[in-house]
């Protein structure tokens, strides 16, 4: 166990990524603002990207698939945020709040 920390190899980076992911998960369940949830999702995506890059570095040395995957993750995260924000703005203009616990019906 200690060797994982003393010599940070693949396992250490993966554990770090998992910790960040679970923190993001906690944030997802805890926040009531829609934007807050989106921020937690970004955190989770970021943790996943870290794991890809660490795999690329330690398990598949020389090839660059992991880094390319990370670039794609970043691109998709950007796209997602764009659309999410657009939708949130529209919802806000109708409801004047962004509390997800109050948005549990399709129509009013």
């Amino acid at each position: 166990m200690l060797s994982i920390i003393q010599e940070p190899g693949l396992t250490y980076w993966l554990l770090l990524s998992t910790v960040l992911f679970s923190i993001g998960l906690y944030g997802f369940f805890t926040r009531t603002n829609a934007i807050g949830i989106l921020i937690s999702v970004e955190l989770m995506l970021n943790a996943a990207a870290i794991s890809f890059v660490s795999f690329n570095n330690f398990a598949v040395t020389g090839d660059l698939d992991g880094q390319i995957m990370t670039m794609f993750i970043i691109a998709v995260a950007a796209a997602e945020v764009v659309i999410g924000m657009a939708i949130f703005i529209q919802i806000f203009s109708k409801q004047r709040h962004l509390n997800v616990t109050k948005m549990n019906e399709l129509s009013r």
């Binding site: 369940f29 949830i37 997800v100 549990n104 019906e105």
Partner: peptide
Amino acid sequence: QTGNIHTYTMMFL
């Protein structure tokens, strides 16, 4: 079917 996103994700996870 609560409509609450937290519930859904919790069940998912």
